[in-house]
């Protein structure tokens, strides 16, 4: 059993029976999600099925009405958003969340901190090595950046909080093919660095290739949770629920 004291096998996140509402609309209907250390997980589902809501629920931006969430084995039910993410979680939202009135440099460093166990693996120089393009734009304001630069910035900003886990919503949405390639390459590097990720994206093929495990969500319920090899062998599942 892995419950109890946070040992090495304790999942980063262990969520059970999440029910999330927006006002009166019931969006998540009993979601169970477990994310282990260094795991790359894709969250797949058609439009409006609850992927974004799931990510927002996990970090407390959309607190669940029912269910439990443990981070490193500790219940975070009553915790504020900033307390939850300080456990080593970074959030890259679908709209990127770049502050338009802060410079690129300020966007990068405003939240920079060492990880929950004092780890300091991602100084500015390493983030800039990963995204050389950002180097030339340091003084530009957030609202002067292209979509690709914003996506690099939001991932770079996430890394500068030295997370154990990055929740990446719409990782390559709206980017030109060349930029998508750059972002996927970076995600592979992040994987190599041992950081766990939960990725939402429309590019199912690349997701299957990159991720260790896939979760399919349908109308606020998880209808599939298994490793990529298994899913590749069962293409009818993807056809049925995702349409590819």
């Amino acid at each position: 059993m892995t419950t109890g004291s946070p040992g090495n096998n304790t999942p980063l996140i262990e969520a059970r029976g999440l029910h999330t509402f927006y006002g009166d609309s019931h969006i998540l209907h009993g979601i169970d999600i477990t994310i282990h250390k260094s795991e790359t997980v894709s969250l797949i589902g058609r439009n409006g099925m609850g992927k974004t809501t799931t990510l927002r629920t996990l970090i407390g931006l959309a607190p669940p009405r029912q269910g439990t969430i443990k981070v490193h084995g500790r219940d975070i039910k009553k915790s504020k958003v900033h307390k939850i993410v300080h456990q080593g979680i970074a959030y890259v939202p679908d709209d990127r969340g770049i502050f338009p009135n802060l410079s690129l440099y300020e966007n990068l460093i405003m939240a920079a901190r060492s990880g929950p166990n004092g780890r300091d693996d991602w100084p500015l120089s390493r983030v800039l090595d990963l995204f050389p393009r950002l180097k030339e734009r340091m003084g530009h304001m957030g609202n002067q950046l292209s979509g690709g630069e914003q996506q690099m910035l939001t991932i770079g900003r996430a890394l500068m909080t030295n997370p154990d886990l990055i929740l990446l919503d719409e990782a390559t949405e709206g980017l030109a093919p060349k930029l998508r390639k750059i972002i996927w390459a970076v995600i592979k590097q992040i994987k190599k660095a041992g950081i766990a990720t939960v990725i939402v994206d429309k590019d199912i093929k690349t997701l299957l290739e990159i991720s260790d495990r896939n979760i399919i969500i349908e109308k606020g319920k998880i209808i599939y949770d298994g490793d990529s090899e298994k899913l590749i062998k069962e293409p009818e599942i993807l056809k049925k629920y995702v349409g590819v």
């Binding site: 970090i59 931006l61 504020k80 958003v81 900033h82 993410v85 300080h86 959030y91 939202p93 969340g97 502050f99 338009p100 009135n101 802060l102 300020e106 460093i109 405003m110 939240a111 901190r113 900003r157 909080t161």
Partner: peptide
Amino acid sequence: TKLGMTIRAGASNRQMTQALGINIE
């Protein structure tokens, strides 16, 4: 200053500021 950065960030996007670990309260 960093305090100023977080003040400006909080003024433009409160949720994202929190999601980055800033204690908005």
